[in-house]
Design a protein around this nucleic acid. Structure first.
Length: 925
RNA sequence: GCGGAUGUGGUGAAAUUGGUAGACACGCCAGACUUAGGAUCUGGUGCCGAGAGGUGUGCGGGUUCGAGUCCCUCCAUCCGCACCA
C-alpha cells in the first residue's frame, strides 16, 4: 500500500470536523493550557509559507499538551478591521466587509489544508458587531475610570466626582493633565462644559486637544508606534505634527506597572528591552528656577541633581511657552528668526541634523537656586518640547550636548568633578567625586543626588521625580473600517451610549472618503443609517487597529457570551495565555497595549491576572530566495555564470521563481509567456545553452516574485510533510531563507515511516515483545522529544524522528508496541498520517489525540559498556569499548596497556591522566 | 553613538551541565534495481594531502587536562532606540 497522502489527509480532516475532535470545553477535572497565535489580518494576498510557521509550532505544542492530559485551548480568529480593505473600498466602491469576508474565506481554506487543531467554534473577528460590542464596552469602562495613585489602580469616575464635590481636587492623588487646583465650592460653580473638561483630564480614555501625528496621505492620525523613521509604518507616507481634538488612552498612568510586569513574564530579552526603551523611565528631580526681574519661573527635569552647582546656562525648546515673555527686547528679532527656522524643520530633520549646533540667547537670566548666580537663558532645538518640561538646566561638564553647546557659543564650563579633566569633553560617568559644590563637596554622585534632592525639597523649589518617555496613545482614527465609538455629542460634550444600545454598528456611507470639510467618513452617514443615534451627533472617528486586538485572547474563552465580554467562571478557568507565538514587529504596539488593557481589566476586577501572555515566542521571518537575471545595455539576457566577474555593466531583473528549474536555470519558454518584455528577448546562454540566475535573499513578497505558497506544497507533498519541513528548517525564533528543495528529505522520511508498517506492501505489525534494541531506540526518542518540546526546539524533534525511523528500519522492527508509541510521539507533528496509522492499529473509532503521551523509562537506555574516546593532549585518537562498572583506576590500566596508547605515548610517561567515567579518557604528555 | 541578537561544511543546521565538532537533511559523487526515474535502496562526502598525517566552529588572545560552549579585545551581519536632559 502506497502512502496516499492526498486521500488520507482530506479523509481525516473531514473526520475530525465531523467528530468535533478539536472542540474544547471547560473541564475542571483537567489542568488547563492556553496556546495562542497572533491572529492574522486577512489580506488579499493570502498566506505564503512564512505565515503558518508559528501556527504549526503552536499546533504541535497544543497537541503535545493535549496528549499529556491537559485541556488545551487553541483558538484562531481574524484581526479583520484595517486599512487595506478600506483602501480597496475607496478605489472600487466595494464595501470593506465584502472584501474582508472573501479574504477570510480564502485564509480559512488555506489554514484548513494544513490540518490545524484550532477550535473553530470559538472563532472571533474584530470586525463583527457581536465582537466589537465588547470592544466598545471596554472603551466605556476606560472612559469611566481614572488612575488613582493612592490605591495604585484604576478607580471609577463617579467616586472622583464625589471628591470634587466634597473637597475639591487638592487631596486627590491621580494621574491627570489637570494643572488647575479647585475647591469644592469652585467645582460646584463650574458649568457642565467646564466640569466635563476637567474630568476628561482624568479619564483613562479621554478627549483632548493635543499634538498628534497627522498623516495626510492616509487621512488619519497615527500613534507613535505606527510611525517608523518619521514616516507611516503602513505605506511609508510623511507624517506631520498637528494640534487636534482626539481620543487618547492614558497609558502613561500604567508606565511603572508595565515596566515592573516585564520581570514576571517569560519573553525574549529583545522584546522586553524594546518595551523598556519605549517606556523610557528616568529618575531625577524637577526643579524650579526663578527668573531675574520676572514673576515667571522655569521648571526643568534633570536626572543629575547632583550636578546642580555645575549649571552655567539654561536651554529652552524653541516652542517653549515662556520664550516670548522672557525674551529681552534687544534679542526679540533674533529669537523670532530662530523660532521660525526651527518650526520649518520637520521633526525628522531635527533628528537627522544632530551635528549642527544651533541656538539663540534670550537676553534673559535665571537665578541659581543655591548660589543666586545669574544664568543666561538660551533656546536651542536640541531641547525637545515634548519631553520633560521642554527646558533643561545645562551642565556642560557632565553632559556632552551641553558641553558642545557651551563650547560652540563660548559659555562658561564649570568643573564640579574632583580630579577629572574636562578640557576635551564632558565627563558623563556617574562615578566622580563632586567638588566646587558647597554642601555636596566630597560626596559620590549617588549620595550627592540624594542630598541635592533633599535640599531642593527643603527649599520648596522642586522634588524628586520620575519621568517617562512613554506618551499617551492616540485612540481615534479618521477612517471608516474600524470600531465606532459608543459616544454621542450634545453641545460638543461627549456622552457614553448606554450598554443596552450596544453595539453601535458601522453605518452605511455613500463613500469611504472624508467629507468636503475634512470630517471623517462616518460624518457622511445619515441619521437613519445609525442603528442607534442620540444627541446632536454621533462620534465620527473610529478606533485604531489595536483596539480589538488588545483583548481578543479573552473572548476566545467565551466567544458567544451576550451578557459579558467573558464570564468570570471561564476566565477563572482558562486564566492567561500560557504560550503565545507571533512576530516581533508588535513589540511596542499590540504587545504593550494588551498588557495595558489587561492591567486595567484586572484593576476593575473583571479578570484574575494582570499579564496577558506568560510566555512569548517570536518566530523568525521566512525569507524568499529571489532569482536575478542580467540584461546588458542592448537588452540581451546573459547567463549569470558567464558574467559573474563583472556585473556592473548589467541591469538586474527579478524573475518569477516558479520559472527556475532545479539547476538554477530559467525555463525560457515559460519566461517568454510570463511577461511581454521577454517574448522576443535575445538570450546569451552559457556553454550548456542555459541562462543561470543569481539567488538573493529578500523578504518574501509579491513584488520580488519570490513567494512560495503552502497550497502548492500541500498538493504536491501533503500537509504533514509541509508541517514537518517548516519545523525542520531551523530554530523557530531564527529568520531563514526558504528553499523548497529540501522538502523531499522530509517527504521521504514520512514514506519511510509508512513502510515500517507495510514491510511487504501490506499493513502488518508484529505482536509480542520488542527487541531490546528497538526499545532503546524508542525510549531515546521519547526522551529527546520531551526535552526538545520542553524547550520549544521543534527542529531537533524532526531530526529525532528521522533517526528513530532510520534505526527501526535498519532493525526491521515492526513491533506493535514500539510503532504505536512512536506514532503517538509523532502525532503532534504529523497528525494525518499518524491518525491513519492509529485507525489501523486500534480498529476502533478513537482518535490518536485521545491517547496518552509515551513516558520515558531510563531502564531501556542503560548500557553495560561505553565506547570511550581516548585523547592525547585533548586530541581524540582512538576509541575503546569498556564496561561502565570499571573504576577510573581500572580504565587507566586497561587503556595504558593498549598498543594504540603506547604508539601515541611514544615511550613517555603521561604527566596527568584525566578519566571521567562514562565520558572521556585524556592523557597529558 | 547606545542597547539586543547572531556568526559552525557548498546549503538549512545539530552539539541540553566545558568532554568524540558537523547529528539529521538538502546538494554533490559512485553504485544497485529498473523500459524509464524528479521512485526506491547501498556506499562516500568539513578543508588540505596520493598517503601517513595535518588542520578546522568570524579574527586575535586568555582560563582549563580539555573550549563551538567560559572570560577579554576586535571584526561582520541583522534588529531596536536614537538629541530623552
Amino acid at each position: 500500500m502506497e502512502y496516499d497522502f492526498r486521500n488520507l489527509e482530506s479523509k481525516w480532516r473531514k473526520n475530525w470536523q465531523d467528530r468535533g475532535t478539536y472542540h474544547v470545553h471547560e473541564d475542571t477535572t483537567k489542568p488547563k493550557y492556553y496556546v495562542l497565535d497572533m491572529f492574522p489580518y486577512p489580506s488579499g494576498a493570502g498566506l505564503h509559507v512564512g505565515h503558518p510557521l508559528g501556527y504549526i509550532a503552536s499546533d504541535i505544542y497544543a497537541r503535545y499538551k493535549r496528549l499529556q492530559g491537559f485541556n488545551v485551548l487553541h483558538p484562531m480568529g481574524y484581526d479583520s478591521f484595517g486599512l487595506p480593505a478600506e483602501q480597496y473600498a475607496i478605489q472600487t466602491g466595494q464595501h470593506p466587509a465584502v472584501t474582508t469576508e472573501e479574504n477570510i474565506a480564502r485564509y480559512r481554506q488555506q489554514l484548513d489544508q494544513i490540518g490545524f487543531s484550532f477550535d473553530w467554534s470559538r472563532e472571533v473577528r474584530t470586525s463583527s458587531p457581536e465582537y466589537y460590542k465588547w470592544t466598545q464596552w471596554i472603551f466605556k469602562q476606560l472612559f469611566d475610570c481614572y488612575y488613582d495613585l493612592k490605591s495604585n489602580k484604576a478607580e471609577r469616575i463617579p467616586a472622583l466626582i464625589q471628591h470634587f464635590e466634597s473637597v475639591g481636587n487638592a487631596a486627590v492623588q491621580a494621574v491627570t493633565d489637570c494643572e488647575e487646583q479647585f475647591s469644592a465650592e469652585q467645582w460646584n460653580s463650574f458649568s457642565a462644559q467646564k466640569k466635563e473638561e476637567i474630568i476628561q483630564s482624568y479619564r483613562l480614555a479621554y478627549l483632548a486637544e493635543s499634538w498628534v501625528n497627522w498623516c495626510p496621505a492616509l487621512g488619519t492620525v497615527l500613534a507613535n508606534d505606527e510611525i517608523v523613521n518619521g514616516v507611516s509604518e503602513r505605506g511609508g507616507h510623511p507624517v506631520e505634527q498637528k494640534r487636534m481634538r482626539q481620543w487618547s488612552m492614558r497609558i502613561k498612568a500604567y508606565a511603572e506597572r508595565l515596566l515592573e510586569g516585564l520581570d514576571r513574564i517569560d519573553w525574549s530579552d529583545s522584546i522586553k528591552e524594546q518595551q523598556r526603551n519605549w517606556i523610557g523611565k528616568s529618575q531625577g528631580a524637577s526643579l524650579i528656577f526663578a527668573i531675574e526681574n520676572s514673576s515667571e519661573t522655569i521648571e526643568v527635569f534633570t536626572t543629575r541633581p547632583d550636578t546642580i552647582f555645575g549649571v552655567s546656562f539654561m536651554v529652552l525648546a524653541p516652542e517653549h511657552p515662556l520664550v516670548n515673555q522672557l525674551v529681552h527686547p534687544t534679542h526679540k528679532d533674533a529669537v523670532a528668526a530662530y523660532q521660525r527656522d526651527a518650526s520649518l524643520k520637520s521633526e525628522r530633520d531635527r533628528q537627522a541634523d544632530v551635528k549642527n549646533i544651533s541656538g539663540q540667547a534670550l537676553g534673559a537670566y535665571a537665578l541659581h537656586p543655591f548660589t543666586g548666580e545669574r544664568i543666561p537663558i538660551w533656546i536651542g532645538d536640541y531641547v525637545l518640547a515634548s519631553y520633560g518640561t521642554g527646558a533643561v538646566m545645562a551642565v556642560p561638564c557632565g553632559d556632552q550636548r551641553d558641553y558642545d553647546f557651551a563650547t560652540h557659543f563660548q559659555l562658561e564650563i564649570k568643573n564640579i568633578f574632583a580630579d577629572i579633566d574636562i578640557s576635551e569633553q564632558a565627563y558623563t560617568e556617574k562615578d566622580a567625586v563632586i567638588a566646587n559644590s558647597d554642601f555636596l563637596n566630597g560626596l559620590s554622585a549617588k549620595s550627592a543626588m540624594k542630598k541635592a534632592i533633599e535640599a531642593i525639597e527643603a527649599k520648596g523649589i522642586g522634588k524628586g521625580k520620575t519621568n517617562f518617555r512613554l506618551r499617551d496613545a492616540v485612540f481615534s482614527r479618521q477612517r471608516y473600517w474600524g470600531e465606532p465609538f459608543p459616544i454621542s455629542y450634545t453641545d460638543e460634550i461627549p456622552t457614553l451610549i448606554l450598554d443596552e444600545f450596544l453595539p453601535i454598528e458601522l453605518p452605511e456611507v455613500d463613500k469611504y472618503l472624508p467629507t468636503e470639510d475634512g470630517e471623517p467618513p462616518l460624518a457622511r452617514a445619515k441619521k437613519e443609517a445609525w442603528n442607534h443615534f442620540e444627541g446632536d451627533r454621533m462620534e465620527f472617528n473610529t478606533m485604531p487597529g489595536w483596539a480589538g486586538s488588545s483583548w481578543y485572547f479573552l473572548r476566545y474563552m467565551d466567544p458567544k457570551n451576550e451578557k459579558e465580554f467573558v464570564s468570570k467562571e471561564k476566565v477563572a478557568y482558562w486564566q492567561n495565555v500560557d504560550l503565545y507565538i507571533g512576530g516581533s514587529e508588535h513589540a511596542t504596539g499590540h504587545l504593550l497595549y494588551s498588557r495595558f488593557w489587561t492591567k486595567f481589566l484586572f484593576d476593575q476586577g473583571y479578570i484574575p491576572f494582570d499579564e496577558p501572555f506568560a510566555k512569548l515566542i517570536n518566530q523568525g521571518m521566512i525569507l524568499g530566495k529571489s532569482a536575478l537575471a542580467f540584461l546588458d545595455e542592448q537588452g540581451n539576457m546573459h547567463s549569470y555564470d558567464t558574467i559573474a566577474n563583472d556585473l556592473s555593466k548589467y541591469r538586474e531583473v527579478r524573475i518569477l521563481i516558479d520559472l527556475i528549474q532545479d539547476d538554477e536555470s530559467i525555463d525560457l519558454d515559460a519566461l517568454r509567456k510570463w511577461q511581454p518584455q521577454f517574448e522576443a528577448m535575445n538570450f546569451v546562454t552559457n556553454a550548456q545553452g542555459k541562462i543561470i540566475v543569481k539567488r538573493e535573499v529578500d523578504k518574501m513578497s509579491k513584488r520580488w516574485y519570490n513567494v512560495v505558497t503552502p497550497d502548492d506544497l500541500c498538493e504536491k507533498y501533503g500537509a504533514d510533510t509541509l508541517r514537518m519541513y517548516e519545523m525542520f528548517l531551523g530554530p523557530l525564533e531564527q529568520s531563514k531563507p526558504w528553499d523548497t528543495k529540501g522538502i523531499t528529505g522530509v517527504h521521504g522520511f514520512l514514506k519511510k515511516y509508512w513502510r515500517l508498517f507495510h514491510p511487504n506492501g501490506q499493513f502488518e505489525v508484529s505482536e509480542g515483545q520488542a527487541s531490546k534494541q528497538a526499545m532503546k531506540t524508542l525510549h531515546k526518542t521519547i526522551k529527546r522529544l520531551r526535552d526538545d518540546l520542553d524547550r520549544y526546539a521543534f527542529n531537533t524533534g524532526v531530526s529525532s524522528f528521522m533517526i528513530c525511523v532510520n534505526e527501526l528500519s535498519e532493525q526491521k522492527c515492526n513491533n506493535r508496541h514500539v510503532l504505536t508509541q512512536l506514532s503517538i510521539l509523532m502525532a503532534p507533528y504529523a497528525p494525518h498520517i499518524t491518525e491513519e496509522i492509529w485507525s489501523k492499529l486500534s480498529n476502533d473509532d478513537s482518535s490518536i489525540f485521545d491517547q496518552s503521551y509515551p513516558v520515558f523509562d531510563e531502564e531501556f537506555l542503560k548500557e553495560s559498556d561505553f565506547e570511550y574516546p581516548v585523547s592525547f593532549n585533548g586530541k581524540m585518537r582512538f576509541k575503546v569499548s569498556l564496561n561502565l562498572e570499571l573504576t577510573p583506576k581500572e580504565i587507566e590500566e586497561h587503556v595504558l596497556n593498549m598498543p594504540e596508547s603506547q604508539k601515541y605515548l611514544e615511550g613517555k610517561t603521561p604527566k596527568k591522566i584525566v578519566i571521567v567515567p562514562g565520558r572521556i579518557v585524556n592523557f597529558v604528555i
